[in-house]
Amino acid sequence: MALRVIDPDYGAAGVPVREDLKEAHRFLLDHVRAPGTWWTGQERVSIAAASRGAPACGLCQARKESLSPGAIAGRHRAAGALREDVVDAVHRIRIDPARLSKPWFDEVIAGGLAEGPYVEMVAVTALVAGLDYFARAIGIPPFPLSAPLPGEPSRYRPAAAKPEGAWVPMIAPEDASGHEADLYGEAAIVPNIVRALSLVPSEVRALRRAAETHYVPVAQISDPTVRRALDRPQMELVAARVSALNECFY
């Protein structure tokens, strides 16, 4: 079993990639294959593979083009040992997130997937989507998924997580203490997108790591003077267009 994550190869991009981005990619690839809170490393790699494979799934394409995606029956194109309902949820989140709904979520949970594993599945699915979109944009093959790391899930459920108006319980900033004291960093305001995964705190930390390198740190989002090589209006234009195409209200 490979204990070291496979180093991404950016050579085909033809542009220098920032070191902090490279480190974040290595971190995320390692994070995905490690035992999580509710899923083993093997299961997390399977979720990652299902996320990556979703764009080639015929059932998902048919549903995407349908006015009523729930009315299209069939089987997903997926390999591995994941349950069919898990593959279905991963594919829907990857391919058609704009049409997820509270009734759909309730059905997933009623089907036997508890909230904690659901949140962790969302995180892995979304983080791999991000890695894949980076590779697609810059013009390199998708980053290889490394072999899963051994170990058992921690099954840690933070006691402070409670209903906060989202579909899943979240930890309010004022309740982030003890093991979760670091969860939201130094940000004066913690937006719901940062709290969204807090039922599984390790996924909040991974999301923050991804966001601070690919966008800006949470504490600096509201500061219009913060920029990268792009100026801030350019950054916000790109971000807004992606979210508009994804039909994301948030």
């Binding site: 997130p97 969302v122 979109y133 980076f134 944009a137």
Partner: peptide, 18 residues
């Protein structure tokens, strides 16, 4: 990097119903 980042947060937002 921005395209990657917002493809992550859009999915997290929509799948958690925040």
């Amino acid at each position: 990097a921005l395209v990657a980042s917002f493809n992550v947060v859009d999915r997290v937002a929509d799948a958690t119903g925040i």
